[in-house]
Design a protein around this nucleic acid. Structure first.
Length: 265
DNA sequence: ATGACCGATTGCATCGGA
């Protein structure tokens, strides 16, 4: 089965690109980020007509995540636990029942975190990012206790390695690529999660995002920030990862491209 | 040279994104 993650940068603006890609690629589960609409605004009927169960966690204007699945979804959780005052829609999780068993999947839109001010820990947006990563780690630790296939897929807004950007020196210090961010990302993985890209690819320069500005796409000035993290039970059944770079060429593309994990699940 | 983009909003500019 194929589990995909894609930051679509508005599902309404991207509906044609998304349906065309779903039709061509036929992922079994798609984790979407930045749907940028409330739940009622999501083009549910169009996606359901393609054979998907649709579960959303939206909000007005910004953020918003969704799960699309050809397998039935249950145990749906909206919102990341750990802060009742957090009203940003950045996390949705569910269990998909497949022919061979079950897999728990989350669609994650991790905060960007910029700007980082002179005092990083006095920067509201950056501390929100770090706190969110701490909460994600705590929640993932709970989920790992199930000892079942688990895939945490999404836009992590983390550049894991220097080879994941065209300009590591230029990016260093940004909220996506600085020591506190990498420490938090490592702390998340070190509870026992496996990054599919590390397991199955590992090459430098395999970007998932190109800015709309400055001819970034035309000059291949990208970054790799969309990731799939797996529990041991999921990585044991994983077969590969594919970055769908060609979607960045289309009419009205998202600035992110889909990343697809292949599994024997 | 993030000056040069894109999307959402009740707007006729501003904010957020990365």
């Amino acid at each position: 089965m194929k589990i995909a993650t894609w930051n679509v940068n508005s599902i309404k603006a991207r509906l044609h690109a998304v349906t065309a890609w779903l039709e061509a690629e036929q992922p079994d589960i798609a984790c979407l980020q930045e749907i940028k609409t409330v739940d009622d605004g999501f083009p549910r009927l169009e996606i359901e007509a393609m054979g998907y169960q649709v579960e959303t966690h939206g909000q007005k204007s910004y953020n918003g995540v969704a799960l699309l699945s050809k397998f039935p979804l249950e145990d749906i959780r909206r919102g990341l636990p750990g802060d009742d005052g957090d009203d940003q829609a950045r996390y949705i999780e569910a269990v998909a029942s497949t022919d061979k068993g079950a897999v728990r999947v989350a669609s994650i839109y991790l905060p960007n975190g910029n700007p980082v001010l002179e005092d990083p820990i006095a920067s509201p947006k950056y501390t929100y990012k770090l706190d969110w990563m701490t909460r994600l780690r705590a929640h993932a630790l709970d989920l790992l206790q199930h000892e079942e296939p688990l895939v945490l897929a999404g836009d992590y807004n983390v550049i894991p390695r220097p080879g994941d950007t065209h300009d590591p020196k230029g990016w260093w210090g940004d909220a996506l690529f600085r020591q506190e961010t990498l420490d938090a990302f490592h702390a998340l993985k070190h509870i026992g999660l496996y990054d599919m890209f590390d397991q199955f690819d590992g090459r430098d320069g395999q970007y998932t995002f190109w800015d709309y500005q400055g001819g970034a796409w035309q000059n291949n000035l990208g970054i790799r920030i969309d990731h799939l993290l797996c529990s041991p039970q999921a990585i044991d059944r994983a077969e590969g990862i594919t970055i769908h770079k060609s979607t960045r060429e289309g009419v009205k593309p998202s600035d992110h491209v889909p990343v697809v994990g292949h599994f024997d699940l």
